[in-house]
């Protein structure tokens, strides 16, 4: 049975699918991180966020990050990572990470590791749409050959 599921989706992300994938009789811990669109950023009122991605590279980066998490924290854990591509309104789910492991500590560590590495390494961008009709691509982490 596969230990990793990763993907980029243009349809709504499923929390249930993530929980189901990492579930297992050996696992006493299931840790999730769910990223959502909030209604404010840096003092501006936000209506929604559009996500774009360089799809050919996203899955490879996601797979690498999950393999690293397994190697660092628990060789038998299961990891699920999906990110949305397209426009989301307030409350929309942009990313779902789930980790199932025998004990709680590796699942906490792996979940944190996966979201932090995703933010630094995944070729994904977001444009915020504001209540005043303006929109803006946000800055972020510079990609380099060394952090991939």
């Amino acid at each position: 049975m596969a230990q990793i599921f990763t993907g980029l989706s243009e349809t709504p992300l499923s929390i249930d699918a993530a929980a189901d994938f990492v579930n297992g009789d050996k696992n006493g811990a299931l840790n999730m991180f769910i990223g959502k669109v909030r209604n404010h950023n840096l003092g501006r009122e936000v209506l929604g966020v559009s996500y774009d991605a360089f799809a050919p590279m996203v899955k490879a980066v996601f797979d690498d990050i999950c393999v690293e998490a397994i190697e660092k924290f628990d060789n038998e854990m299961r990891c699920y990572l999906t990110h949305f591509k397209g426009r989301l309104e307030i409350g929309g789910i942009s990313v779902v990470i789930a980790v199932g492991s025998a004990h709680r500590e590796p699942s906490f560590q792996a979940c944190r590791y996966i979201i932090e590495e995703l933010k630094k390494r995944a070729p994904i961008w977001k444009k915020e749409h504001y209540i005043d009709g303006d929109d803006e691509w946000l800055g972020g982490h510079i990609l380099s050959a060394d952090n991939g």
């Binding site: 360089f54 933010k119 995944a122 070729p123």
Partner: peptide, 23 residues
């Protein structure tokens, strides 16, 4: 991602990736 020591070896199709902020 291409490193600083990359050199063009022939026809290539390259992507330009601005700073990222997924999540």
């Amino acid at each position: 991602i291409l490193g600083a020591n990359y050199s063009l070896a022939g026809d290539a199709k390259l992507a330009i990736l601005p700073p990222v902020n997924g999540g």
